[in-house]
């Protein structure tokens, strides 16, 4: 069994953010920092205390980001980056969402992308009536080798079939178009 001393998530401390849609307030006022974790033990304590993704109301988001990076395009560590986007069908909320989101979190805290893990900024979950979304955000959309490595590992870890195609979109493109129209810069 694992030992008793805490297992550090070196080099990263991770911050969990929660967004609850309240149209009477500005977007940033709806974004709340929940907690920061820097050990495996703290991560599970946090995970055990928050609602499962599938239990959140529509319009809510979770985001897990490296400490010091805010979960928004405007952050200097995000603005040149982009995201690997997983769009789920409505019925997958009950069958798949919790597993896929947990797997995403484990990819992040486990630094699963080898040396390219430093390119990862965080991950975002959007719970939406029209279909939930999960995305892994990376720092530099022009880093083709890093982005593709992360995409391939991520797709494999999610257990997606080879027939399923996932796309990477630069935030700069997403910001100027509606999500469904932003073009894929890379696919795996």
């Amino acid at each position: 069994p694992p030992g008793h001393s805490p297992h550090s998530l070196t080099p990263s401390r991770w911050a969990l953010w929660f967004f609850k849609n309240d149209r009477s307030r500005a977007w940033q006022d709806n974004l709340h920092l929940v907690t920061k974790v820097d050990t495996v033990e703290d991560f599970w304590a946090m995970y055990g205390h928050i609602q499962l993704a599938s239990k959140l109301s529509s319009g809510c988001d979770y985001a897990l980001f490296k400490d010091g990076i805010e979960p928004m395009w405007e952050d200097s560590k995000n603005k040149r980056g982009g995201r690997w986007l997983i769009s789920l069908a409505k019925q997958q909320r009950h069958s798949e969402l919790d597993r896929l989101w947990l797997e995403t979190l484990l990819c992040l805290i486990g630094e699963s992308f080898a040396e390219h893990s430093r390119e990862v900024c965080g991950a975002v979950l959007n719970v939406r009536t029209k279909g939930d979304k999960i995305a892994v955000w990376t720092r530099e959309a022009e880093n083709q080798a890093g982005v593709l490595h992360i995409g391939r590992i991520y797709k494999e870890r999610l257990g997606l079939s080879t027939k399923t195609i996932i796309g990477y979109q630069a935030h700069a493109d997403t910001a100027t178009k509606s999500n469904s129209l932003a073009k894929n810069k890379f696919v795996v």
Binding site: H4, H7, V40, E41, A45, G110, S117
Partner: peptide, 20 residues
């Protein structure tokens, strides 16, 4: 240093009681 944890290792901790 950099630490990489595989998913099975991380999952082993999920239901461990917090021990002080």
């Amino acid at each position: 240093g950099k630490k990489q944890y595989d998913r099975e290792f991380l999952l082993d901790f999920q239901f461990m009681p917090a021990c002080i």
